[in-house]
Design a protein around this nucleic acid. Structure first.
Length: 281
DNA sequence: CAAGAATCCTGAATGC
DNA sequence: TGCATTCAGGATTCTT
């Protein structure tokens, strides 16, 4: 489940691989990818041989690979992965895109569940339309004020608000659940009940958990691997995610699992109480 | 407009 | 052991 720290690790790996040789060939499987079905301004065939690749950057969970005024946008979805290998390497099952460079290396997009997607378009217009245009702020420089401005009136529960990419870009279920634990806020608390101090605490917790996970190279729960095939290390640093029924690392209380909106979550009933008062400080 | 529900996938984990 | 069932979840589209 690649979220921001995993996507960041993939981007760093792609840049470290020094992908500088011009494009020789681009291939795309015929199978549909889920994300970006509506993105059809310019097909991948517009990425023509001879084009020079540029740097790889990131916005939220989207990978942006620059090519002379155009950008290849990649979303890893649930099970997506980038593989850099020799062009002679056999195509792994579920390979959906392959960019062959003149130095005989391939950059491949592999995605068994096909929840990810790729799109190629002019860099100038890419930012003006969804999904990039509607993304919320980046978590690393998030403030409590920004969070409150975007979600302070919402009747949704905190966990769901943090998953909304328009509120905040790049956070998924793992880091939403972890950040709420660090901020000592109940995941099923209604967002509109929080006061400014609680929003500030939550923003700080998000910055903290995201930067820590980046330092660990992301979290590998099941599928995730970086561009060199390595697992992340943050799964060993998780406080609550995936630990329902186990003791809280801070207080020893048995952690409680829940399902809301079809998404699982975990919290500590001692450290993340549901307050009785109307406003949560 | 906001919020919830349904949708799409396959591999891993679980159940019998 | 083997087969069938359940689960996991991001973004988009549809419905209320």
């Amino acid at each position: 489940m690649p979220e921001l720290p995993e996507v960041e690790s993939v981007c760093r790996g792609m840049n470290a691989a020094r992908l500088q040789a011009p494009v020789e060939e681009v291939w795309r499987s015929a199978l549909p990818l889920r994300i970006g079905k509506a993105w059809q301004e310019e097909g991948l065939e517009a990425l023509t041989p001879g084009t020079d690749p540029g740097r790889v950057t990131r916005r939220g969970k989207y990978i942006l690979w620059a090519f002379e005024g155009s950008t290849l946008l990649i979303h890893l979805g649930m099970s997506g992965r980038i593989l850099i290998c020799s062009r002679d390497e056999r195509l792994a099952p579920h390979t959906h895109m392959c960019v062959t460079l003149a130095d005989h290396r391939d950059v491949r997009f592999i995605d068994p569940r096909r929840f990810g997607g790729v799109k190629f378009g002019r860099s100038s217009t890419l930012w003006e339309s969804p999904p990039l245009a509607t993304l919320g702020p980046e978590p690393l420089d998030l403030t409590g004020e920004a969070l409150e401005a975007r979600a302070g009136h919402s009747k949704r529960v905190l966990r769901d608000v943090l998953l909304d990419q328009r509120v905040l870009a790049g956070v998924g279920n793992i880091y939403a659940v972890e950040a709420l634990f660090l901020a000592e806020l109940h995941p099923l608390l209604e967002a509109s009940r929080l006061r400014a101090s609680a929003w500030a605490r939550l923003a700080a917790a998000i910055r903290s958990v995201i930067s820590s996970a980046i330092e660990h190279g992301g979290t590998t729960f099941r599928d995730y691997r970086d561009a060199s095939g390595a697992k992340g290390g943050h799964q060993h640093a998780l406080w609550v995610y995936g630990r329902a029924g186990e003791p809280c690392r801070r207080c020893g209380t048995t952690l409680v699992g829940f399902t809301h909106q079809g998404r699982s979550g975990v919290f500590c009933p001692h450290d993340q109480k549901r307050p009785r008062s109307r406003r949560v400080v």
